[in-house]
Design a protein around this nucleic acid. Structure first.
Length: 457
RNA sequence: GAGGUUGUAGCUCAGUUGGUUAGAGCGUCGGUUUGUGGUACCGAAGGUCGCGGGUUCGAGACCCGUCUCCCUCCCCA
């Protein structure tokens, strides 16, 4: 009985050509991080449930893949909780581990755990898979790679500026034609909630504002009403919908708007510094905008927040991040501020594919194939192949002496540039034939000086 | 988690109001006389029609369930 081959929803296989393109993408990101002095770390695919649960809000918790206890640990099942209808508690009793949902929370755990082994400010990058039990959609997978960079242990706003530079460098290097880095600050959002007297509705306000570009101002107002905001507060918020102009001008307006909020003004100061600094230094291709409607769901952000969109492409944000002041506190290390970003490698991949931006030469091809025409002949080929490899040239010997036609077809399918033919006739004359697979031309060389002749081609 | 949609050979799809042995193109494999690929010609293999149940004399077509694809919401990379 054969089984129909299939993989779980939201996952993918990668063919050799896919892997080649992905390695290219990762290498660009890696090299930019390293140029900025970031150090690589890796953390396990799964963490203790207690490390992850409760860090991403209720929605996030729901999307965490949990790992069922195995063996005798199944006996720990809390049947009383099941009887009482307390499903979350029952589920927790069945699962002590979970697949990582992002790279930031494991990083916070890592920093607290290894605080004596690292030097602050600590700048790390991490390129690994994460898993979310989300419903798959365009640009949305259950297994995907994030490429995080975080700088922890420094509250200097120069870190924020550096991340803008990093985003700019990566996306410019990938030749993405037009992209926008949107920036906001959680303190400004807090200030807005404060000045309209709805500080306890902060989450509702930010979530509603975040939907601005999707549902429009009327939709946002409807949403705010449904969350129970007063008419006065809504009237106070609605002027923000039409905020326009350069970042500096918008910040001036927001400064007046938030004049009664200490925290709000702090947010304005921070952003103004970031904008002024990055303007002074300059960027390559990035457009940088202040967007008061940018909220971002993850509830651990406390300062600047970033989101990056590729212009004119139907794809969610390809990069996001922000500053978090006390994420390590839950792991026993308090007073350490951090800021970080995360590139969504799979979404960037999809964008590069859609815009046809992958360089032609990333595909993997074979340089030389030695055709196999018999045992004695193949021994000579194996010897030559060994020497070619030590000269840095990739090559292989066809494993069996099947029809030449078949072997040439194989060379063709592999995108092979050269084929070496050593048969009975060549062997007798101590020669070999070198075939150029593109032109079809064939040259003869003495076996003894093939290596030196080939490297001249 | 809510709603909609899709599912036929390895891939892209046909398959007419339910009616004999389910088709095409591409791909794969083999051949077109001995050691020359990418083109051409000839031929072959490959499908319990996503899975399970039901209606019917008869189901790839209809009904129910389930899984999956894609999409909207939620949320997010």
């Amino acid at each position: 009985m054969s089984q129909k081959p299939s993989i779980p929803k939201g996952t993918r296989d990668f063919l050799p050509s896919d892997v080649a393109k992905r390695s290219y993408l990762f290498s660009v990101i890696r090299s930019v991080y390293e140029k900025h002095g970031f150090l690589p770390i890796e953390t396990p695919s799964f963490e203790l449930s207690s490390t992850l649960m409760g860090k991403y809000g209720d929605e996030g918790d729901r999307l965490i893949f949990r790992i069922l206890n195995s063996g005798d640990k199944m006996k720990k099942a809390d049947l009383q909780a099941l009887d009482a209808g307390n499903l979350p508690k029952f589920a927790s009793s069945l699962s002590e581990k979970a697949l990582r949902y992002d790279l930031t929370v494991p990083f916070a755990r890592f920093v607290a755990q290894h605080q004596n082994d690292i030097t602050f400010p600590f700048k790390r990058y991490q390129i690994q898979a994460v898993w979310r039990a989300d419903r798959p959609q365009h640009g949305r997978y259950q297994e995907f790679y994030q490429c995080d960079g975080d700088s922890i242990g420094s509250d200097s706003l120069l870190n924020e500026v550096e991340f803008i530079q990093i985003i700019d460098s990566v996306l410019t290097q990938l030749a993405i034609p037009a992209f926008t880095i949107k920036i906001n600050n959680r303190k400004i959002l807090s200030g807005i909630a404060e000045v309209c007297g709805e500080a306890h509705h902060l989450i509702a306000i930010t979530v509603a504002l975040d939907k601005m570009d999707k549902i429009g101002s009327a939709g946002v107002i409807t949403e705010l009403e449904s969350k129970g905001l007063s008419q006065g507060a809504i009237d106070k918020i609605s002027p923000l919908f039409s905020l326009k102009g350069k970042p500096e001008e918008q910040l001036d307006l927001m400064e007046k708007y938030l004049s009664n909020s200490v925290v709000g003004l702090k947010g304005i100061d921070e952003l103004r510094y970031v904008f002024e600094t990055i303007t002074a230094i300059g960027v390559q291709e990035a457009k940088i905008e202040f967007d008061v409607t940018l909220a971002r769901g993850l509830n651990y952000y406390t300062g600047a927040i970033f989101e990056v969109k590729v212009d004119n492409v139907n794809m969610g944000s390809i990069c996001g991040g922000g500053r978090y002041d006390d994420l390590t506190a839950t792991f026993g290390l308090s007073g350490v501020s951090g800021v970080g970003i995360s590139f969504g490698a799979d979404r960037i991949y999809d964008v590069l594919e859609e815009l046809n931006l992958f360089p032609k030469n990333v595909s993997l091809s074979l340089s030389v194939l030695f055709v196999n025409l018999g045992h004695k002949e193949s021994l000579v080929s194996m010897q030559l192949a060994k020497e070619l490899r030590s000269n840095g040239i990739d090559c292989e010997v066809y494993p069996s002496a099947v029809k030449l036609q078949k072997q040439l077809k194989y060379a063709n399918d592999r995108g092979c540039a050269w084929v070496v033919i050593i048969g009975e006739e060549e062997l007798q004359n101590q020669q070999l034939s070198l075939k150029n697979m593109e032109s079809g031309e064939q040259l003869k060389f003495a076996i003894t000086n093939f290596i030196s002749e080939f490297s001249k081609l």
